[in-house]
Design a protein around this nucleic acid. Structure first.
Length: 113
DNA sequence: AAGCTGACCTCGC
DNA sequence: GGCGAGGCCAGCT
């Protein structure tokens, strides 16, 4: 691939693009985003990206881990805020407080090829 | 300045 | 099938 420069910052930028495009009432996972960015092992970095995204208007609450648990709820300031936001969007939760991934899982598509 | 941590995931034994 | 370690990027101490 040409790969002119594709700095690492591009990774962050892509994460924001994807997260910003998450439809209402849908959720995605860190791994999906990381994979869409081209690096599935960078799922961790995705979390960091959201950490900064927290400062932006990105719906970071729509991003959960692979099992559908709100791992980052603690970082929202109010743990229950995340659940409230998701419920307000129509996301359904299981008895274990896990998001119903089978129903609201949204797979991001590669914006740039 | 260097090293560790952090909202994870996947592969290996 | 369960447990362990590795890997990615950026920010903070």
């Amino acid at each position: 691939m040409p790969n002119t420069k594709k700095t690492k910052k591009d990774f962050f930028d892509k994460v924001y693009e994807i997260v910003a495009k998450i439809p209402k009432g849908k959720v995605t996972t860190y791994g999906a985003i990381a994979e869409t960015c081209g690096i599935r092992s960078a799922a961790r970095t995705v979390g960091w990206a959201l950490n900064s995204a927290k400062n932006t208007n990105l719906p970071c609450h729509r991003v959960v881990n692979r099992i559908g648990a709100l791992t980052g709820k603690n970082h929202f300031g109010n743990p229950m805020l995340m659940e409230e936001l998701l419920r307000a969007e129509g996301i359904e939760f299981t008895k274990d407080n896990f998001v119903n991934m089978s129903k609201h899982f949204w797979h991001p598509k590669r914006v740039n090829k």
